[in-house]
Design a protein around this nucleic acid. Structure first.
Lengths: 108, 108
DNA sequence: TTCTTATTTAACAATATAGTTAAATAAGAA
DNA sequence: TTCTTATTTAACTATATTGTTAAATAAGAA
């Protein structure tokens, strides 16, 4: 729980969020092939990957000259678990809001 | 999906993450009483709340001089839904990792 | 109206973030 | 070794973020 905000920080940048979604949807990708998904220089992608790695969101595997990146499942599960730990709050709040909308519809 | 990274940005600051957790656990709180949870000035808290509000993470209700803040359940649900949309990836990845650990234990 | 409480906005300084190009490093191929 | 491909690190600039104090605004109470 204490380092979840670092995970959120890693995912707060649009480029990094796009990288992570790309890796989640298509699995492992090289640094170079990730460069294609946004109009950005190589060094910029490289640094974003370093930030994601330091936050524990992705991990690296070396394949000859290429560095292959994939999402660490634990990172996404940690976010999931945080939402679950407050699930009662948001689910009941939403249920109440829905009841209000239904009541308003009946009044009109 | 497109504005989830703004939600993550709002939650990336440790002070804001603490504020949100406080509101999730104890419900609606005034700006002033939130000041107590971190050693920070009033104006700083006020601006953090504005950022959270702009990101759609909290909403405000006016009660005389006080501004009461509460978490918008939709914000947490949006995060939850994102983790769910990739659940197959992270759950099966974790299951595979666990299998590897079991296999290693048997080898030792 | 004037005082008090609660909160926000303004102005500013310090630090962090993200992008760029050029140089360095890593590793296979000629 | 030298060339080529892939990626990272260094150096630098521009912009964003966060915190502070002082002033402004909001609203009830005297």
């Amino acid at each position: 729980m204490s380092k979840l905000n670092s995970t959120f920080a890693a995912l707060s940048d649009p480029t990094r969020f796009a990288i992570v979604n790309q890796l989640l949807e298509n699995g492992e990708k090289s640094a170079g092939s990730l460069k294609g998904i946004v109009a950005i220089s190589g060094p910029a992608i490289s640094r974003h990957l370093k930030i994601l790695r330091n936050a524990g969101v992705v991990e690296q595997r070396i394949d000859a000259q290429r560095r292959m990146y994939r999402v660490r499942p634990q990172a996404i599960m940690a976010i999931h678990n945080w939402t679950i730990s407050h699930q009662e709050f948001w689910q009941s709040s939403l249920a109440r809001l829905e009841q209000v909308l239904i009541a308003e519809k009946e009044t009109k």
